[in-house]
Simulated assay, not measured.
Amino acid sequence: MRILGLSGNLRAASAHTALLHAAAQTAPAGVEMTVFDGLGRLPHFNPDIEDQEIASAPP
């Protein structure tokens, strides 16, 4: 069985992402789990980038 893990929280210290990585490392035999880390390259999904853009926007 193959599982793809996606975390909806893209912050660097996300507990959700850490949990996905722990699940991938402890997956039982016969289970292959991959954690997808590409969502952060889509700026409109990244709250850290959105916060920076709002803070740097002219008044």
Rank of each mutant, 00 (worst) to 15 (best):
L19K: 07
L6N: 03
T26P: 00
T34H: 11
R41V: 00
A12V: 08
M33H: 03
S14M: 04
A15E: 09
A15P: 04
T26N: 14
D48W: 05
A13L: 11
L39N: 00
P43L: 01
G8V: 07
I54G: 01
I54N: 08
I54C: 03
A18V: 00
T26E: 13
A24E: 00
L4C: 01
G38C: 04
H16V: 15
A18P: 04
I49K: 02
P58K: 13
L20S: 01
E50L: 14
L19W: 11
A57W: 10
A29P: 09
L10E: 07
P28E: 14
A12W: 08
L4Y: 02
L6Y: 03
T26M: 10
I49S: 01
M33N: 04
I54E: 06
M1R: 14
F45K: 00
I3F: 05
V31Y: 06
A15C: 06
T26G: 05
H44F: 13
T34K: 11
L20A: 01
A23H: 11
A13W: 10
E32H: 10
S56M: 10
L42K: 03
E53V: 09
T34E: 12
D48M: 04
T17A: 12
D37M: 07
A57H: 11
M1K: 14
M33Q: 03
P47Q: 11
A24P: 01
N9H: 05
F45A: 04
H44R: 07
R11P: 00
T26F: 10
A57N: 10
L19E: 12
E32K: 06
A13H: 12
M33I: 13
T17D: 11
L19V: 08
L42Q: 06
N46Y: 00
G5W: 02
Q25L: 10
L6S: 04
A12Y: 02
A15Q: 08
A12H: 10
H16D: 15
G30K: 05
A55N: 06
N46T: 00
P58I: 12
N9D: 14
H21L: 12
N9E: 13
H21C: 11
D37Q: 08
G30R: 05
A12G: 02
P28Q: 13
P47W: 02
I49P: 00
A24F: 03
I3N: 00
H44K: 07
S56H: 13
E50W: 00
V35G: 01
A23C: 14
L39K: 02
P47E: 08
A24K: 02
D48Y: 05
A15K: 09
N9S: 15
G5M: 04
R11G: 04
L4P: 04
P59D: 15
A22R: 12
R11N: 10
S14W: 11
T34M: 05
A57I: 01
A23S: 13
P28M: 02
L42M: 14
R2W: 07
A13K: 14
A27N: 06
G8E: 02
S56L: 14
S14K: 03
D48T: 09
T17V: 06
D51F: 10
A18C: 08
D51L: 05
A55R: 11
A23K: 12
M33C: 06
Q25A: 15
L39D: 01
I54D: 03
I3G: 04
A29H: 11
A23T: 07
A15D: 06
L6G: 06
P59C: 08
A13T: 12
L19G: 13
D48V: 05
P59K: 08
D37W: 01
I49Q: 00
E50A: 13
S7R: 04
